[in-house]
């Protein structure tokens, strides 16, 4: 069981996330939705411990917290640290050395689909290839929580499909996956559940089946409706 409770975060005086609570029983794929700047990335950074929440937050994974929890979470916020001459195999070497749970076999398998050339320089990769690389490195760990922050930004439709297929095929069955994205229609059939963030809060935490059964709407229709409703009925 992965659980986030009482999570609050402020930057200066601006409250970025307020009273965030949710839990997940693996296996589960959770879509994290919301407009730009709503705090989706910050939520992931808080979960992995890259930034620290206000006091009173509890993030646990099967009873693990803090450093032990961090070890079971796979998340790569960026590859900004990579130098100009570094190749994909240099980056790979870092993750292989740094993470004992790095699964070389899975990397090889995933890479059959994603077709990254290990001799390529990372700085010369296109946006889409870079997302593929981050994606492949992330899912190649034997973690319990995987977090993908907008894996589809700047990625063409065929690659998006490939990434989703890879995700479905290669992620362990005891894992929770958090995936933020704006490609709502595309991820609807893939996710079990969505969290919709607005104005620092989670305004929706529902399974796709519930949304379809109870609201008789697609995820995208429901998303738009809830955002409009939350704005007091004013169209965006």
């Amino acid at each position: 069981m992965f659980k986030v409770a009482g999570l609050n975060y402020a930057r200066g005086r601006r409250s970025v996330l307020q009273d965030i609570n949710f839990e997940s029983d693996a296996p589960e794929i959770i879509g994290v939705l919301g407009e730009n700047g709503v705090g989706k990335t910050t939520l992931m950074r808080l979960i992995v411990g890259a930034v620290l929440p206000k006091k009173g937050a509890h993030i646990t994974l099967d009873g693990l917290t803090g450093d032990a929890l961090k070890s079971a979470v796979a998340f790569i916020p960026n590859l900004n640290w990579v130098r100009k001459r570094d190749t994909i195999s240099d980056v790979l070497a870092f993750y292989r050395a740094g993470y004992p749970d790095f699964n070389q076999e899975r990397w090889t398998e995933v890479n059959k689909t994603l077709r990254l050339n290990e001799q390529d320089q990372v700085s010369a990769l296109s946006k889409g290839m870079l997302e593929r690389l981050i994606f492949a490195l992330t899912v190649s760990r034997d973690a319990k929580v995987f977090m993908l922050d907008e894996p589809f930004s700047g990625v063409d439709v065929l690659t998006r499909r490939k990434l989703l297929q890879t995700l479905i095929q290669w992620v362990p069955e005891d894992a929770t996956i958090l995936m933020s994205t704006h490609e709502i229609a595309e991820i609807e059939p893939v996710v079990d559940r969505v969290l919709i963030l607005k104005d620092a809060h989670i305004i929706v935490d529902q399974t796709i089946d519930d949304i379809r059964d109870n609201e008789h709407m697609t995820l995208e229709q429901y998303y738009v409706q809830r955002y409009v409703e939350d704005n007091g009925g004013i169209e965006l």
Partner: peptide, 12 residues
């Protein structure tokens, strides 16, 4: 503050 080091599975 370098995430690729800070996020390694090592205690603080």
């Amino acid at each position: 503050q370098d995430a690729h080091f800070v996020l390694l599975p090592v205690s603080k």
